[in-house]
Amino acid sequence: MLKVQDLHVSVFGTPILKGLSLEVNPGEVHAIMGPNGSGKSTLSNVIAGRDGYEVTSGSIEYIGKDLTELEADERACEGIFLAFQYPVEIPGVSNMAMLKAAVNSMRKYRGEDEMSAAEFLQLIKKKAELVQMKQEFLKRSVNEGFSGGEKKRNEILQMAMLEPTLALLDETDSGLDIDALKVVADGVNALRSPERSMVVVTHYQRLLDYIVPDHVHVLANGQIVKSGDKSLALELEERGYGWIEDEVSGLQEAS
């Protein structure tokens, strides 16, 4: 589904990703962990097609397409969803209006008819219940005045509405209380299916108790330096990142 090969990315001239490779198959959940500033958000942004992130070499392939050829909105319409680490406020635009435009824009891309107002209302009600979000939040401006946790929940609501093929969750668990964490995890798990893949960026193994990953990767200094199964996350929780960095530098010295 997603194939990232030897990817080098510069952000405004500064190299951030330095030869990253990652392959995600349909139905898989991958967790990405790693120290602050290692490039996790950069990876999510470059997959989603943010301006200013320049691919200097390597490739990103998604369902057989070269992603770098597509604009951010086209990638979204192709089924890539990014739950932002820092969701953006859009004053004066209601959550509902934004989602309606998003749903219909994607339908149009796929050559389908617009969703009727009634159908949309029904759907959004159902999805809001799923993430236990009160109706009033639908009428409020996108993320404006939302608490940190409410913003994250809103990202999951959007994901539930848009039903992506590849979901990138960038620290969606950060700043959530235990109950909210479960809600978010339920939202994500409800979307899990053999066709859908997820890349979950997190600092905490706790989330992975709820969203059980097939693979865990450690990103450090712009590369994936270690991969394993979910036990790797437990080990990281216990030991931190130092030992991996030592391992890596040891390897580099040996070679």
Binding site: R50, D73, A76, L82, I90, A102, S105, L162
Partner: peptide
């Protein structure tokens, strides 16, 4: 970027 990530074209995003 936020709105385009939700599938809106650049023009639609600006308009919104």
């Amino acid at each position: 970027f936020y709105l385009m990530q939700r599938g809106l074209s650049e023009e639609a995003a600006v308009s919104m």
